[in-house]
Design a protein around this nucleic acid. Structure first.
Length: 649
RNA sequence: GCGCCCGUAGCUCAGCUGGAUAGAGCGACGGCCUCCGGAGCCGUAGGUCAGGGGUUCGAAUCCCUUCGGGCGCACCA
């Protein structure tokens, strides 16, 4: 909403600048820190003071004289050091907010293009931990934001089912424990927890006798070839673990459009196609000698961003003929853009709505009209430690002459999640400093454990508020399923915790902090909405109108909008630009922060300005209007954040 | 050695393309439920924005530098 007004103000200022000083200047328009100062402001007089050799306030005053007050504004003032501040005609602007869609299709979105978001990508060999949750929440919130902005978006979850990590657990089952494939199949849930322990056990087993690493190598080959008992065990393992990961993510309302499997990339020779292209364009060369003798390498020395590397060449094909991860990833990235000239075959995963890449089977059903890949922009949500590899993938596209696609290959990098000293110590790990999680060492907090803990705590809090028998003040609330509500609160707490952190910062995961339901938290957002809804319910019960109409708001005297009420209206009008900026800069914490700002303002207003007991009809309707605007705005942001909003708490 | 990220209140962190008095949450202390639900609100205390230079009318923000901390720089993913 506010973007339009910003443009209008900028236009008015520009023509005033032209008229008063004969300048062609593009003025900055911002929101002043306090509402009494105004609603939109420009520091352009400060910027131009040097050029015009005049005092900023004098410039500002002159500007205001020449300024034609734009429609919808009540006055313009000069404030502070020389700011030109615009004040809305409040009732009029508030009325436009009543029916406004808080976050609508963005003008900058091309409806024909598709963005591919890849996230989660957990190695299918053990349970998901909280680090994976950060990845999945960021990816999911990004996808939701893009879709809210009208962008066609496809979410892919890459399954590395032929890598070392899977191989290690296969070795654990077959060699360390002497299991058969049938034994693995018969293991009870939680299968991913079993593998969690086994994986770290295998690590120690290798260390005890390094000759055992030969088993890993042999298993890796079997996985890549897709044949034999080891491959069969690997397929079963990956399939069971993926099912568990999907179940974990479903608990926090995260889903996908497509699972892409590395085994299919190998089976369909995607790399062979990519390799042909790389050789043709000279992007890779064969090393006859040196430390990389016998390998195909991609030279990076010419590229600006790879200066200063010890070894300016990246191995793509090893001397034994196998392909490195980067090689496979370049092929996969080409496919995402529709540049490979090959496609997967598709089937439903476990007969559900989710698609996976798979050998087509007669009964499995093919994708029909479903078309995957062929994105115009690809956003890979991968932690910051892999920045180097992501840059090489991009350089690969560049070397193949796909400049646009290289530019549109975006690495959404975020920092890792470590354990806080306090939490690490409580879990029995040595914790003198922040502790990095490690699947190999078995250090970490499992995602499902954290979710269980959050749900238990939610349930306790609900029961505490409702009394020991779980009944509320009335029958409707008593019949509510406390389990459902507890889950909603847990989801809100977790998702908000992950979404509010700036991506460039390492999260020091603290269990107390993460399970807090007070202050800046998901439940705090939920509670604010519950309060807004309660007001309207109470109005209904009292036989009063629970909504105020736009035309009524427009006719209110401007004096009813005290600065604190007005602040919330103005904040609500910024939802669209906040979400657009978040999506453009991949700084999704902006959305979470904005949601908290809104909720904080509303909670404060709630205590200061009663609605039900207000006798003055104008005041009551203004407050009701603010409540409506708040509700709509926070609902829109909560939808993007994936924070569910319960009817009661 | 080269590159990226971080250093703001006791703790965890915001601070938008340089701008108005550096803000939240947690913790501490003190208040507020005969009044729309206290998962809330109001107030108090707490800051050499790591240090030092520079650019500017103006720097937490931009540049240089020093010091701390984290992460990368594989024929592993």
């Amino acid at each position: 909403m506010l973007q339009r007004e910003r443009t209008i103000v900028a236009g008015a200022l520009r023509s005033a600048l032209s008229q008063a000083f004969g300048l062609d200047h593009d003025p900055v328009v911002e929101v002043p820190p306090q509402r009494r100062l105004g609603d939109l402001a420009s520091p352009c007089a400060l910027h131009l003071a040097r050029e015009l050799r005049q005092a900023p306030r004098a410039i500002a005053t002159r500007l205001v004289e020449c300024l034609e007050l734009p429609e919808g504004f009540e006055r313009v003032t000069v404030e502070g050091a020389g700011y030109v501040n615009f004040h809305f005609a409040r009732s009029r602007f508030a009325a436009t907010m009543i029916d406004a869609v808080p976050v609508a299709r963005s003008a900058s979105v091309d409806s024909r293009s598709k963005v591919i978001v890849e996230h989660t990508n957990i190695n299918p060999n053990k349970a998901a931990h909280i680090g994976h949750l950060r990845n999945a929440v960021l990816g999911d919130v990004l996808a939701r934001a893009l879709r809210q902005l009208g962008q066609t978006t496809e979410v892919q979850n890459y399954i590395d089912d032929t890598g070392v990590q899977v191989a290690d657990v296969v070795v654990g089952f077959l060699d360390l424990r002497g299991c058969s494939v049938a034994d693995i199949e018969a293991l009870p849930e939680p299968f991913d927890y079993v593998c969690w322990d086994l994986y770290s056990e295998v690590g120690r087993w290798y260390e005890a006798d390094p000759k055992r690493l030969e088993l890993r190598r042999r298993t890796l080959h079997a996985l890549e070839a897709g044949e034999g008992r080891r491959a069969e065990a690997g397929r079963l393992l990956a399939r069971r673990i993926v099912a568990r990961h999907l179940a974990t993510m479903a608990r926090i309302d995260i889903d996908y459009d497509l699972l892409t499997r590395e085994s299919e990339i190998l089976r369909l020779d995607f790399f062979v196609a990519a390799f042909e292209q790389l050789k043709e364009t000279g992007a890779v060369r064969f090393e006859e000698s040196g430390k990389n003798a016998g390998c195909w390498v991609m030279p990076l020395a010419d590229s600006e961003e790879f200066q200063g590397l010890e070894d300016p060449d990246k191995v793509i094909v090893r001397s034994d003929g196998t392909v490195t991860y980067v090689g496979k990833d370049i092929a996969y990235q080409l496919w995402k853009f529709g540049l490979l000239g090959r496609d997967f075959e598709y089937a439903r995963f476990d007969g559900g709505p989710l698609w996976e890449t798979a050998p087509s089977e007669p009964e499995a059903g093919d994708a029909g009209d479903e078309r995957f890949g062929e994105g115009s922009r690809v956003i890979n949500v991968i932690d910051a430690r892999q920045a180097y590899l992501q840059r090489i993938v991009r350089a690969g596209l560049e070397a193949l002459g796909h400049r646009d696609e290289a530019r549109d290959s975006i690495h959404f990098a975020y920092e890792m999640v470590a354990l806080s000293a306090r939490t690490a110590e409580r879990l029995g790990f040595s914790g003198d400093a922040r502790l990095e999680m490690s699947g190999r060492k078995g250090i970490g907090v499992k995602a499902d454990d954290l979710l269980d803990q959050l749900e238990t705590k939610s349930r306790d809090e609900i029961l505490e508020r409702r009394g020991p028998d779980g009944t509320d003040r009335d029958d409707e609330a008593a019949s509510e399923d406390i389990g459902v509500l507890a889950r909603q609160i847990a989801v809100a707490a977790l998702r908000f915790f992950m979404a509010r952190a700036t991506t460039t910062r390492v999260i020091a995961f603290d269990i107390d902090d993460a399970t807090s339901f007070e202050g800046e938290s998901g439940p705090y957002l939920q509670y604010s909405i519950v309060r807004a809804r309660n007001i309207r319910r109470r109005l209904r019960e009292e036989g009063l109108a629970q909504e105020v109409h736009r035309s009524r708001v427009a006719s209110l005297p401007d004096g009813v909008w005290s600065d604190d009420l007005w602040d919330l209206v103005l904040l609500a009008s910024q939802c669209q630009e906040v979400v657009e900026r978040a999506a453009a800069t991949l700084e999704l914490s902006l959305i979470a922060r904005h949601a908290v700002d809104l909720a904080q303002k509303f909670h404060a207003i709630y205590h200061r300005h009663p609605i039900l007991h207000e006798q003055d009809a104008d005041l009551r309707d203004a407050r009701l209007a603010v409540t409506q605007v708040f509700e709509r705005s926070l609902q829109a942001l909560a939808q993007i954040l994936g924070v569910p909003l319960p009817a009661r708490m």
